[in-house]
């Protein structure tokens, strides 16, 4: 197989050095920057609403539990691409309402889906805190919510730092789906930037460069998770 491949042709179609150079600096200053903006918005929104939904899932109030469970099932069950299209295109077409900001058009659906996934991660973290912690806090006269805020959630967050970092990595990659929305040149993410580059150069090199930039962001984070998990394992030994 390796011998049959025409390496020269492959390189000219996928990795032409002059095209690589052409991608810079705007692939970093524009496209990578937008990918990071989408990711951070999606993560921050997902974390806040994920915490809310996790607490609702654990609530003794049944309607809260039902609402959160339904929300989580729906947004985990529909592919992000479909959610993006429904919220990004479908709702504006149906209602005449327009997204006030092209960033929000992509970032809000991303955050809504992320919150469903993170709710389950956070719930698992809260449930991993030994139940004696809640009992000790309650026996000191703390209310349920006070005990949650002061005692349980700080411990749960520690437990879920590695899985949440993984969610962050997934989000970085998922922002590429936002490229299906009609975005302006200023709000293009990495994937869209690469695709537009393919169109303008008739060459796959821009996509390869975009892929490398993704790797530059994701690999350090997955290594960080691996390191945290090794350290956790060593600590619990």
């Amino acid at each position: 197989m390796v011998l049959v491949v025409d390496w020269g042709r492959l390189q000219s179609a996928m990795f032409q050095w002059d095209i690589v150079v052409e991608q810079f600096p705007s692939i970093l200053t524009n496209a990578a920057k937008n990918t990071i903006i989408f990711t951070i918005f999606g993560f921050a929104g997902g974390l806040s609403f994920g915490l809310l939904f996790a607490l609702m899932r654990l609530s003794t109030v049944r309607p809260y539990r039902w609402f959160a469970a339904t929300y989580i099932e729906i947004f985990r069950g529909i592919p992000l691409l479909v959610t993006l299209l429904i919220l990004g295109f479908g709702i504006p077409i149906a209602t005449g309402w327009r997204w006030p900001n092209p960033y929000l058009q992509g970032a809000v659906p991303l955050a809504l889906v992320a919150s469903a996934y993170m709710a389950e991660t956070i719930r698992a973290g809260i449930e991993a805190v030994p139940k004696g912690q809640m009992e000790a806090a309650r026996s000191l006269g703390m209310s349920y919510s006070r005990a949650m805020i002061t005692i349980i959630i700080p411990q749960a967050l520690r437990i879920i730092v590695p899985p949440l970092t993984n969610e962050f990595v997934l989000l970085i990659k998922d922002t590429s789906l936002i490229s299906v929305l009609g975005v302006t040149a200023g709000t293009r993410d990495l994937a869209r930037f690469g695709r537009d580059g393919v169109n303008s150069t008739a060459n796959a090199t821009p996509l390869i460069v975009a892929g490398l930039v993704y790797l530059a962001m994701t690999v350090p984070l997955t290594q960080l998770v691996a390191w945290m998990e090794r350290r956790e394992k060593a600590a619990s030994r």
Binding site: G132, A136, A137, R138, S139, L140, G141, M142, P154, Q155
Partner: peptide, 29 residues
């Protein structure tokens, strides 16, 4: 909650708050 504040409890498994120092454990409530 008000009633429990007047009833101390000591558990078999201690149930100290692991993310707090000894002093903070005694201070938090």
């Amino acid at each position: 909650d008000e009633a429990r504040a007047h009833i101390g409890m000591v558990f078999q498994q201690f149930n100290l708050f692991p993310h707090m120092t000894a002093l903070e454990n005694v201070c938090v409530a």
